[in-house]
Write a protein that binds this DNA or RNA. Structure first.
Length: 433
RNA sequence: GGAGAGGUGGCAGAGUGGUCGAAUGCGUCGCACUCGAAAUGCGAAGUACGGGCAACCGUACCGGGGGUUCGAAUCCCUCCCUCUCCGCCA
Protein backbone atom coordinates (compact mmCIF):
# COMPACT_ATOMS: atom_id res chain seq x y z
CA UNK A 1 0.00 0.00 0.00
CA UNK A 2 1.24 3.45 -0.84
CA UNK A 3 1.29 6.57 1.29
CA UNK A 4 -1.16 9.10 -0.11
CA UNK A 5 1.09 11.91 1.05
CA UNK A 6 3.99 10.43 -0.89
CA UNK A 7 1.78 10.18 -3.96
CA UNK A 8 0.79 13.82 -3.54
CA UNK A 9 4.40 14.89 -3.33
CA UNK A 10 5.61 12.55 -6.07
CA UNK A 11 2.71 12.35 -8.47
CA UNK A 12 4.93 12.13 -11.54
CA UNK A 13 7.02 9.32 -10.06
CA UNK A 14 3.82 7.45 -9.16
CA UNK A 15 2.46 7.82 -12.67
CA UNK A 16 5.74 6.80 -14.26
CA UNK A 17 5.91 3.74 -11.99
CA UNK A 18 2.42 2.59 -12.88
CA UNK A 19 3.17 3.03 -16.57
CA UNK A 20 6.32 0.94 -16.21
CA UNK A 21 4.09 -1.67 -14.62
CA UNK A 22 2.25 -1.79 -17.91
CA UNK A 23 -0.69 0.43 -17.01
CA UNK A 24 -2.31 2.33 -19.83
CA UNK A 25 -1.45 6.06 -19.77
CA UNK A 26 -5.06 7.20 -19.64
CA UNK A 27 -5.88 4.82 -16.81
CA UNK A 28 -2.89 6.11 -14.85
CA UNK A 29 -4.04 9.72 -15.17
CA UNK A 30 -7.58 8.84 -14.17
CA UNK A 31 -6.45 6.74 -11.24
CA UNK A 32 -4.17 9.38 -9.80
CA UNK A 33 -6.74 12.14 -10.33
CA UNK A 34 -9.30 10.00 -8.52
CA UNK A 35 -6.90 9.44 -5.62
CA UNK A 36 -6.42 13.19 -5.28
CA UNK A 37 -10.14 13.76 -5.37
CA UNK A 38 -10.75 11.12 -2.67
CA UNK A 39 -7.99 12.56 -0.53
CA UNK A 40 -9.24 16.15 -0.87
CA UNK A 41 -12.68 14.97 0.12
CA UNK A 42 -11.31 13.00 3.03
CA UNK A 43 -9.30 15.88 4.43
CA UNK A 44 -12.12 18.33 4.09
CA UNK A 45 -14.48 16.00 5.91
CA UNK A 46 -11.95 15.34 8.66
CA UNK A 47 -11.43 19.04 9.22
CA UNK A 48 -15.17 19.58 9.42
CA UNK A 49 -15.70 16.66 11.81
CA UNK A 50 -12.94 17.85 14.07
CA UNK A 51 -14.35 21.35 14.32
CA UNK A 52 -17.75 19.97 15.28
CA UNK A 53 -16.21 17.61 17.81
CA UNK A 54 -14.08 20.37 19.29
CA UNK A 55 -17.18 22.47 19.93
CA UNK A 56 -18.98 19.54 21.52
CA UNK A 57 -16.06 18.72 23.78
CA UNK A 58 -15.74 22.31 24.89
CA UNK A 59 -19.41 22.63 25.78
CA UNK A 60 -19.51 19.26 27.52
CA UNK A 61 -16.64 20.33 29.69
CA UNK A 62 -18.50 23.51 30.58
CA UNK A 63 -21.49 21.41 31.59
CA UNK A 64 -19.32 19.49 33.98
CA UNK A 65 -17.99 22.70 35.46
CA UNK A 66 -21.45 24.22 35.76
CA UNK A 67 -22.71 21.13 37.55
CA UNK A 68 -19.70 21.29 39.81
CA UNK A 69 -20.81 24.76 40.82
CA UNK A 70 -24.39 23.51 41.18
CA UNK A 71 -25.50 25.92 38.48
CA UNK A 72 -28.14 23.59 37.06
CA UNK A 73 -29.82 26.24 35.02
CA UNK A 74 -26.66 26.95 33.06
CA UNK A 75 -25.99 23.24 32.70
CA UNK A 76 -29.42 22.62 31.20
CA UNK A 77 -28.99 25.50 28.85
CA UNK A 78 -25.65 24.15 27.65
CA UNK A 79 -27.08 20.65 27.28
CA UNK A 80 -29.69 21.94 24.91
CA UNK A 81 -27.01 23.55 22.75
CA UNK A 82 -24.91 20.39 22.61
CA UNK A 83 -27.94 18.34 21.66
CA UNK A 84 -28.38 20.59 18.66
CA UNK A 85 -24.82 19.96 17.56
CA UNK A 86 -25.14 16.24 18.02
CA UNK A 87 -26.95 15.28 14.84
CA UNK A 88 -24.55 17.29 12.74
CA UNK A 89 -21.56 15.79 14.45
CA UNK A 90 -22.79 12.22 14.02
CA UNK A 91 -23.41 12.70 10.32
CA UNK A 92 -19.92 14.09 9.94
CA UNK A 93 -18.42 11.09 11.73
CA UNK A 94 -20.10 8.65 9.38
CA UNK A 95 -18.97 10.67 6.39
CA UNK A 96 -15.43 10.63 7.66
CA UNK A 97 -15.40 6.86 8.05
CA UNK A 98 -16.73 6.47 4.52
CA UNK A 99 -14.23 8.92 3.05
CA UNK A 100 -11.26 7.23 4.73
CA UNK A 101 -12.43 3.84 3.54
CA UNK A 102 -12.95 5.04 -0.02
CA UNK A 103 -9.37 6.27 -0.18
CA UNK A 104 -7.97 3.12 1.43
CA UNK A 105 -9.89 0.90 -0.96
CA UNK A 106 -8.40 2.79 -3.88
CA UNK A 107 -4.88 2.62 -2.45
CA UNK A 108 -5.16 -1.13 -1.84
CA UNK A 109 -5.62 -1.65 -5.57
CA UNK A 110 -2.27 -0.07 -6.47
CA UNK A 111 0.72 -2.36 -7.04
CA UNK A 112 4.13 -1.63 -5.63
CA UNK A 113 6.39 0.40 -7.92
CA UNK A 114 9.46 -1.11 -9.58
CA UNK A 115 12.88 0.15 -8.53
CA UNK A 116 14.78 2.18 -11.12
CA UNK A 117 17.17 -0.69 -11.85
CA UNK A 118 14.38 -3.13 -12.78
CA UNK A 119 14.34 -3.74 -16.55
CA UNK A 120 11.31 -2.46 -18.42
CA UNK A 121 9.20 -4.98 -20.23
CA UNK A 122 5.76 -6.38 -20.87
CA UNK A 123 6.02 -10.04 -19.90
CA UNK A 124 8.40 -12.91 -19.16
CA UNK A 125 10.10 -12.54 -22.55
CA UNK A 126 11.64 -9.28 -21.36
CA UNK A 127 13.17 -10.73 -18.20
CA UNK A 128 16.93 -10.36 -18.07
CA UNK A 129 19.20 -13.34 -17.54
CA UNK A 130 21.48 -12.27 -14.70
CA UNK A 131 23.70 -15.31 -14.23
CA UNK A 132 23.89 -18.96 -15.22
CA UNK A 133 25.29 -21.56 -12.86
CA UNK A 134 26.36 -25.13 -13.62
CA UNK A 135 25.87 -27.00 -16.86
CA UNK A 136 23.27 -29.19 -18.49
CA UNK A 137 23.59 -32.87 -17.60
CA UNK A 138 24.97 -35.02 -20.38
CA UNK A 139 22.92 -37.95 -21.65
CA UNK A 140 23.80 -40.61 -24.20
CA UNK A 141 23.37 -39.39 -27.76
CA UNK A 142 20.56 -41.83 -28.49
CA UNK A 143 18.66 -41.12 -25.28
CA UNK A 144 15.99 -38.46 -25.12
CA UNK A 145 15.48 -37.40 -21.51
CA UNK A 146 11.94 -38.01 -20.28
CA UNK A 147 9.65 -35.61 -18.49
CA UNK A 148 9.19 -36.07 -14.77
CA UNK A 149 5.69 -37.56 -15.00
CA UNK A 150 6.84 -40.17 -17.49
CA UNK A 151 9.63 -41.17 -15.14
CA UNK A 152 7.43 -41.16 -12.05
CA UNK A 153 4.57 -43.06 -13.63
CA UNK A 154 6.91 -45.66 -15.14
CA UNK A 155 8.38 -46.21 -11.70
CA UNK A 156 4.85 -46.68 -10.38
CA UNK A 157 5.48 -44.04 -7.74
CA UNK A 158 3.57 -41.05 -9.17
CA UNK A 159 -0.18 -41.47 -9.46
CA UNK A 160 -2.30 -38.78 -11.10
CA UNK A 161 -5.29 -41.03 -11.77
CA UNK A 162 -5.99 -41.97 -8.19
CA UNK A 163 -5.49 -38.36 -7.17
CA UNK A 164 -8.03 -37.26 -9.78
CA UNK A 165 -10.58 -39.74 -8.45
CA UNK A 166 -10.54 -38.29 -4.97
CA UNK A 167 -9.59 -34.67 -5.63
CA UNK A 168 -9.78 -33.88 -9.34
CA UNK A 169 -7.27 -32.23 -11.62
CA UNK A 170 -4.01 -30.64 -10.41
CA UNK A 171 -3.36 -33.12 -7.63
CA UNK A 172 -0.85 -35.94 -7.41
CA UNK A 173 -0.10 -38.86 -5.16
CA UNK A 174 3.52 -39.73 -4.53
CA UNK A 175 4.32 -43.20 -3.32
CA UNK A 176 7.20 -45.09 -1.74
CA UNK A 177 10.61 -43.70 -2.62
CA UNK A 178 9.14 -40.62 -4.32
CA UNK A 179 7.07 -39.74 -1.27
CA UNK A 180 10.22 -40.07 0.73
CA UNK A 181 12.21 -38.05 -1.81
CA UNK A 182 9.82 -35.16 -1.40
CA UNK A 183 10.17 -35.41 2.38
CA UNK A 184 13.96 -35.63 2.03
CA UNK A 185 14.09 -32.51 -0.12
CA UNK A 186 12.08 -30.53 2.41
CA UNK A 187 14.22 -31.65 5.35
CA UNK A 188 17.41 -30.99 3.43
CA UNK A 189 16.40 -27.43 2.56
CA UNK A 190 15.21 -26.62 6.04
CA UNK A 191 18.43 -27.94 7.57
CA UNK A 192 20.49 -25.88 5.14
CA UNK A 193 18.64 -22.66 5.91
CA UNK A 194 18.65 -23.13 9.67
CA UNK A 195 22.12 -24.65 10.19
CA UNK A 196 24.05 -22.73 7.52
CA UNK A 197 22.08 -19.72 6.33
CA UNK A 198 21.00 -18.34 9.69
CA UNK A 199 17.23 -18.59 9.37
CA UNK A 200 15.00 -19.53 12.28
CA UNK A 201 12.63 -22.42 11.68
CA UNK A 202 8.95 -21.65 12.15
CA UNK A 203 6.00 -23.99 12.04
CA UNK A 204 3.09 -21.65 11.30
CA UNK A 205 -0.66 -22.00 10.73
CA UNK A 206 -1.64 -22.73 7.15
CA UNK A 207 -5.10 -21.30 7.82
CA UNK A 208 -5.18 -17.53 8.25
CA UNK A 209 -7.77 -14.80 8.56
CA UNK A 210 -8.52 -11.86 6.27
CA UNK A 211 -6.17 -9.43 7.99
CA UNK A 212 -3.12 -11.56 7.33
CA UNK A 213 -4.03 -11.91 3.66
CA UNK A 214 -4.46 -8.15 3.36
CA UNK A 215 -1.11 -7.67 5.08
CA UNK A 216 0.87 -9.48 2.42
CA UNK A 217 -1.46 -8.27 -0.38
CA UNK A 218 -3.14 -11.48 -1.49
CA UNK A 219 -6.32 -9.56 -0.65
CA UNK A 220 -8.28 -7.71 -1.79
CA UNK A 221 -7.08 -8.02 -5.36
CA UNK A 222 -6.33 -11.72 -5.74
CA UNK A 223 -9.32 -13.27 -4.02
CA UNK A 224 -9.96 -15.63 -6.93
CA UNK A 225 -6.53 -17.21 -6.63
CA UNK A 226 -7.16 -18.27 -3.04
CA UNK A 227 -8.88 -21.22 -1.40
CA UNK A 228 -11.43 -20.44 1.28
CA UNK A 229 -11.68 -22.69 4.35
CA UNK A 230 -14.95 -22.27 6.20
CA UNK A 231 -16.32 -18.81 6.91
CA UNK A 232 -13.29 -17.41 8.65
CA UNK A 233 -10.15 -18.78 7.07
CA UNK A 234 -8.04 -18.82 3.96
CA UNK A 235 -5.64 -21.59 3.03
CA UNK A 236 -2.24 -19.98 2.62
CA UNK A 237 -0.95 -19.79 -0.97
CA UNK A 238 2.57 -19.51 0.45
CA UNK A 239 4.20 -19.43 3.88
CA UNK A 240 5.12 -15.83 3.04
CA UNK A 241 1.72 -15.00 4.53
CA UNK A 242 2.15 -16.37 8.08
CA UNK A 243 5.91 -15.70 8.20
CA UNK A 244 5.59 -12.05 7.22
CA UNK A 245 2.56 -11.51 9.44
CA UNK A 246 4.62 -12.72 12.36
CA UNK A 247 5.50 -9.05 12.89
CA UNK A 248 2.17 -7.43 12.02
CA UNK A 249 1.26 -4.45 14.20
CA UNK A 250 4.62 -4.62 15.93
CA UNK A 251 7.08 -1.84 16.62
CA UNK A 252 10.42 -3.59 16.46
CA UNK A 253 13.72 -2.69 18.01
CA UNK A 254 16.37 -2.01 15.41
CA UNK A 255 18.63 -4.37 17.34
CA UNK A 256 16.21 -7.21 16.61
CA UNK A 257 16.70 -6.82 12.86
CA UNK A 258 17.17 -8.47 10.52
CA UNK A 259 14.64 -11.16 11.36
CA UNK A 260 15.18 -14.22 9.16
CA UNK A 261 12.60 -16.99 9.30
CA UNK A 262 11.91 -20.10 7.28
CA UNK A 263 9.12 -22.64 7.13
CA UNK A 264 8.21 -25.81 5.29
CA UNK A 265 4.49 -25.79 4.56
CA UNK A 266 1.90 -26.99 2.14
CA UNK A 267 0.68 -24.19 -0.14
CA UNK A 268 -2.72 -23.97 -1.78
CA UNK A 269 -3.56 -22.16 -4.99
CA UNK A 270 -6.76 -22.07 -6.96
CA UNK A 271 -4.84 -21.42 -10.20
CA UNK A 272 -7.92 -19.64 -11.48
CA UNK A 273 -6.09 -17.81 -14.24
CA UNK A 274 -4.04 -20.77 -15.37
CA UNK A 275 -6.69 -22.95 -16.99
CA UNK A 276 -5.05 -25.12 -19.64
CA UNK A 277 -1.51 -24.27 -18.58
CA UNK A 278 0.85 -26.97 -17.33
CA UNK A 279 -2.00 -29.44 -17.06
CA UNK A 280 0.25 -32.46 -17.45
CA UNK A 281 2.45 -33.48 -14.56
CA UNK A 282 3.04 -31.83 -11.22
CA UNK A 283 4.44 -28.46 -12.31
CA UNK A 284 1.27 -26.59 -11.38
CA UNK A 285 -0.76 -28.14 -8.57
CA UNK A 286 -3.53 -26.94 -6.27
CA UNK A 287 -1.45 -28.18 -3.36
CA UNK A 288 2.32 -28.28 -3.11
CA UNK A 289 5.08 -28.13 -0.55
CA UNK A 290 7.43 -25.20 -0.34
CA UNK A 291 10.23 -24.00 1.88
CA UNK A 292 9.87 -20.25 2.27
CA UNK A 293 12.37 -17.63 3.37
CA UNK A 294 11.24 -14.32 4.87
CA UNK A 295 13.38 -11.42 6.08
CA UNK A 296 12.37 -8.29 7.93
CA UNK A 297 14.98 -5.53 7.69
CA UNK A 298 15.58 -1.84 8.12
CA UNK A 299 15.06 0.28 4.99
CA UNK A 300 18.84 0.60 4.59
CA UNK A 301 19.53 -3.12 4.51
CA UNK A 302 16.82 -4.53 2.28
CA UNK A 303 18.70 -4.48 -1.01
CA UNK A 304 21.69 -6.21 0.51
CA UNK A 305 19.34 -8.73 2.11
CA UNK A 306 17.73 -9.40 -1.26
CA UNK A 307 21.05 -10.52 -2.71
CA UNK A 308 21.76 -12.60 0.37
CA UNK A 309 18.37 -14.30 0.29
CA UNK A 310 18.72 -15.15 -3.38
CA UNK A 311 22.14 -16.63 -2.68
CA UNK A 312 20.61 -18.76 0.11
CA UNK A 313 18.04 -20.15 -2.29
CA UNK A 314 20.69 -20.76 -4.94
CA UNK A 315 22.73 -22.73 -2.44
CA UNK A 316 19.97 -25.35 -2.37
CA UNK A 317 20.36 -25.96 -6.09
CA UNK A 318 24.14 -25.88 -5.95
CA UNK A 319 24.18 -28.59 -3.30
CA UNK A 320 21.75 -30.66 -5.29
CA UNK A 321 24.02 -30.30 -8.32
CA UNK A 322 21.30 -28.72 -10.43
CA UNK A 323 21.92 -26.40 -13.35
CA UNK A 324 20.06 -23.10 -13.08
CA UNK A 325 19.97 -19.47 -14.02
CA UNK A 326 18.89 -16.35 -12.20
CA UNK A 327 16.72 -13.88 -14.08
CA UNK A 328 15.73 -10.37 -13.05
CA UNK A 329 12.04 -10.01 -13.69
CA UNK A 330 11.01 -7.11 -15.89
CA UNK A 331 8.47 -4.54 -14.74
CA UNK A 332 5.60 -6.33 -16.45
CA UNK A 333 6.28 -9.75 -14.92
CA UNK A 334 6.79 -8.83 -11.27
CA UNK A 335 4.35 -9.70 -8.52
CA UNK A 336 1.94 -7.10 -7.15
CA UNK A 337 3.80 -6.42 -3.89
CA UNK A 338 7.33 -6.51 -5.29
CA UNK A 339 9.81 -3.74 -6.00
CA UNK A 340 12.32 -6.09 -7.56
CA UNK A 341 12.30 -9.84 -8.09
CA UNK A 342 14.86 -12.47 -8.99
CA UNK A 343 13.52 -15.74 -10.29
CA UNK A 344 15.67 -18.80 -10.10
CA UNK A 345 14.97 -21.14 -12.98
CA UNK A 346 16.18 -24.72 -12.89
CA UNK A 347 17.09 -26.67 -15.98
CA UNK A 348 14.63 -29.43 -16.85
CA UNK A 349 16.12 -31.78 -19.47
CA UNK A 350 12.79 -33.51 -20.11
CA UNK A 351 11.16 -30.20 -21.00
CA UNK A 352 14.39 -28.94 -22.54
CA UNK A 353 13.99 -25.57 -20.85
CA UNK A 354 14.46 -23.61 -17.64
CA UNK A 355 11.49 -23.48 -15.25
CA UNK A 356 10.92 -21.27 -12.23
CA UNK A 357 11.77 -22.98 -8.94
CA UNK A 358 12.17 -19.92 -6.72
CA UNK A 359 11.17 -16.30 -6.70
CA UNK A 360 12.88 -13.83 -4.38
CA UNK A 361 11.30 -10.41 -3.92
CA UNK A 362 12.03 -7.28 -2.00
CA UNK A 363 8.81 -5.47 -1.13
CA UNK A 364 10.16 -2.31 0.50
CA UNK A 365 7.59 -0.93 2.93
CA UNK A 366 4.63 -1.97 0.80
CA UNK A 367 3.58 -4.86 3.04
CA UNK A 368 4.81 -3.19 6.22
CA UNK A 369 2.34 -0.35 5.68
CA UNK A 370 -0.48 -2.81 5.30
CA UNK A 371 0.57 -4.69 8.42
CA UNK A 372 1.57 -1.55 10.30
CA UNK A 373 4.98 -2.96 11.20
CA UNK A 374 7.58 -0.40 12.18
CA UNK A 375 11.07 -0.12 13.57
CA UNK A 376 11.59 2.08 16.57
CA UNK A 377 13.90 4.95 15.77
CA UNK A 378 16.86 5.61 18.01
CA UNK A 379 16.75 9.37 18.44
CA UNK A 380 13.48 11.22 18.59
CA UNK A 381 12.51 10.75 14.97
CA UNK A 382 9.26 9.02 14.21
CA UNK A 383 9.20 5.28 13.77
CA UNK A 384 9.74 4.00 10.25
CA UNK A 385 8.17 1.13 8.38
CA UNK A 386 10.31 -1.96 8.06
CA UNK A 387 11.15 -3.57 4.73
CA UNK A 388 9.98 -7.10 3.99
CA UNK A 389 11.43 -9.72 1.69
CA UNK A 390 10.29 -13.17 0.72
CA UNK A 391 11.68 -15.95 -1.40
CA UNK A 392 11.20 -19.62 -2.06
CA UNK A 393 14.04 -21.66 -0.74
CA UNK A 394 12.86 -23.56 -2.82
CA UNK A 395 9.60 -25.07 -4.15
CA UNK A 396 9.82 -28.70 -3.06
CA UNK A 397 7.53 -30.19 -5.72
CA UNK A 398 9.48 -28.54 -8.49
CA UNK A 399 12.78 -29.55 -6.91
CA UNK A 400 11.54 -33.12 -7.03
CA UNK A 401 10.75 -32.69 -10.72
CA UNK A 402 14.23 -31.29 -11.31
CA UNK A 403 15.91 -34.19 -9.52
CA UNK A 404 13.93 -36.73 -11.50
CA UNK A 405 14.68 -35.15 -14.86
CA UNK A 406 18.33 -34.32 -14.23
CA UNK A 407 19.29 -37.55 -12.48
CA UNK A 408 17.36 -39.99 -14.66
CA UNK A 409 19.07 -42.94 -16.24
CA UNK A 410 18.33 -44.54 -19.61
CA UNK A 411 16.85 -47.58 -17.85
CA UNK A 412 14.20 -45.46 -16.13
CA UNK A 413 15.87 -45.40 -12.73
CA UNK A 414 16.85 -42.19 -10.94
CA UNK A 415 20.07 -41.55 -9.08
CA UNK A 416 19.76 -39.78 -5.71
CA UNK A 417 21.95 -36.66 -5.39
CA UNK A 418 24.63 -37.07 -2.72
CA UNK A 419 23.22 -34.31 -0.55
CA UNK A 420 19.91 -36.17 -0.18
CA UNK A 421 21.23 -39.65 0.56
CA UNK A 422 21.39 -39.15 4.34
CA UNK A 423 17.71 -38.24 4.18
CA UNK A 424 16.90 -41.29 2.05
CA UNK A 425 18.30 -43.87 4.42
CA UNK A 426 21.37 -44.19 2.25
CA UNK A 427 19.42 -45.09 -0.88
CA UNK A 428 21.45 -44.36 -4.04
CA UNK A 429 19.05 -45.15 -6.83
CA UNK A 430 15.29 -45.22 -7.19
CA UNK A 431 14.38 -48.08 -9.50
CA UNK A 432 11.17 -49.85 -10.45
CA UNK A 433 10.30 -52.56 -7.96
C1' G B 1 -19.56 -27.04 22.94
C1' G B 2 -21.05 -25.37 28.41
C1' A B 3 -19.72 -22.18 32.88
C1' G B 4 -16.69 -18.37 34.79
C1' A B 5 -12.57 -14.54 34.98
C1' G B 6 -9.94 -11.16 32.21
C1' G B 7 -7.75 -7.74 27.85
C1' U B 8 -5.28 -0.37 30.17
C1' G B 9 1.40 2.95 27.65
C1' G B 10 7.95 -0.97 26.09
C1' C B 11 6.52 -4.32 30.52
C1' A B 12 3.84 -4.86 35.19
C1' G B 13 -0.36 -2.65 37.22
C1' A B 14 -4.15 1.29 39.45
C1' G B 15 -8.32 3.61 37.77
C1' U B 16 -16.12 1.79 37.76
C1' G B 17 -19.51 8.41 34.45
C1' G B 18 -16.66 14.88 34.17
C1' U B 19 -10.50 18.46 35.09
C1' C B 20 -8.01 10.82 32.74
C1' G B 21 -3.70 10.37 27.46
C1' A B 22 -4.49 7.97 32.05
C1' A B 23 -1.57 6.99 39.16
C1' U B 24 2.49 3.96 40.65
C1' G B 25 6.61 0.56 39.84
C1' C B 26 10.14 -1.46 36.39
C1' G B 27 12.58 -0.52 31.95
C1' U B 28 14.37 3.62 28.41
C1' C B 29 16.68 8.55 27.55
C1' G B 30 18.93 13.29 29.57
C1' C B 31 21.14 15.95 33.73
C1' A B 32 23.41 16.08 38.71
C1' C B 33 26.56 13.45 42.14
C1' U B 34 31.26 10.12 40.96
C1' C B 35 38.06 9.29 38.74
C1' G B 36 34.44 5.88 36.40
C1' A B 37 30.37 2.69 37.37
C1' A B 38 26.56 1.30 40.74
C1' A B 39 23.24 3.41 44.08
C1' U B 40 20.66 7.99 44.73
C1' G B 41 18.31 12.62 43.26
C1' C B 42 16.08 15.76 39.41
C1' G B 43 13.91 15.82 34.68
C1' A B 44 12.06 13.84 29.77
C1' A B 45 9.41 10.58 26.83
C1' G B 46 2.96 7.34 23.39
C1' U B 47 0.72 6.57 18.34
C1' A B 48 -2.02 8.19 14.22
C1' C B 49 -4.58 11.84 11.61
C1' G B 50 -6.02 17.14 10.38
C1' G B 51 -4.56 22.46 10.29
C1' G B 52 -0.06 25.72 10.23
C1' C B 53 6.20 28.10 6.94
C1' A B 54 6.96 27.22 12.01
C1' A B 55 6.52 27.49 17.30
C1' C B 56 2.22 25.15 17.98
C1' C B 57 -3.08 24.04 17.91
C1' G B 58 -6.89 20.47 17.31
C1' U B 59 -9.15 15.43 16.83
C1' A B 60 -9.01 10.30 17.78
C1' C B 61 -6.95 6.15 20.32
C1' C B 62 -7.40 2.20 27.37
C1' G B 63 -8.42 -5.52 22.44
C1' G B 64 -11.89 -4.47 17.42
C1' G B 65 -16.75 -2.63 16.01
C1' G B 66 -21.44 -0.57 17.46
C1' G B 67 -24.70 1.78 21.24
C1' U B 68 -26.43 4.73 25.79
C1' U B 69 -25.15 9.80 27.64
C1' C B 70 -24.49 16.79 27.39
C1' G B 71 -19.98 13.83 28.59
C1' A B 72 -17.35 6.82 28.39
C1' A B 73 -11.02 3.52 29.96
C1' U B 74 -15.46 3.35 33.26
C1' C B 75 -22.43 1.52 31.52
C1' C B 76 -24.86 -1.76 27.42
C1' C B 77 -24.51 -4.98 22.82
C1' U B 78 -21.40 -7.71 19.61
C1' C B 79 -16.91 -9.83 17.74
C1' C B 80 -11.79 -11.32 18.63
C1' C B 81 -8.11 -12.97 22.01
C1' U B 82 -6.09 -14.94 26.86
C1' C B 83 -6.77 -17.80 31.38
C1' U B 84 -9.58 -21.51 34.74
C1' C B 85 -13.11 -25.60 35.24
C1' C B 86 -16.30 -29.25 32.65
C1' G B 87 -17.36 -31.94 28.06
C1' C B 88 -15.35 -33.65 23.38
C1' C B 89 -11.13 -34.64 20.38
C1' A B 90 -5.70 -35.82 17.08
Amino acid sequence: MHDIRWIRDNAEAMKAGLKRRGWDGLKVEETVAELFRLDDERREIIARTQRAQEERNRLSKEIGQAMGKKDMALAEQLKARVAELKAESEGAGAAETAAVKALDDALLQLPNLPLAEVPDGADEHDNVETRVVGAKPVFAADFKPKEHFEIGEALGLMDFESAAKMSGARFVILKGALARLERALGQFMLDLHTDVNGYREINPPVLVRDDAMYGTAQLPKFRDDQFRAGDDFWLIPTAEVPLTNLVREEILDEKALPIRVTALTPCFRAEAGAAGRDTRGMIRQHQFTKVELVSITTPEKSMEEHERMTACAEEVLKRLGLHYRVVTLCTGDMGFASQKTYDIEVWLPGQDRFREISSCSVCGEFQARRMNTRVRSSEGKSNRFVHTLNGSGVAVGRALIAVLENYQNADGSVRIPDALRPYMGGLEVIAAA
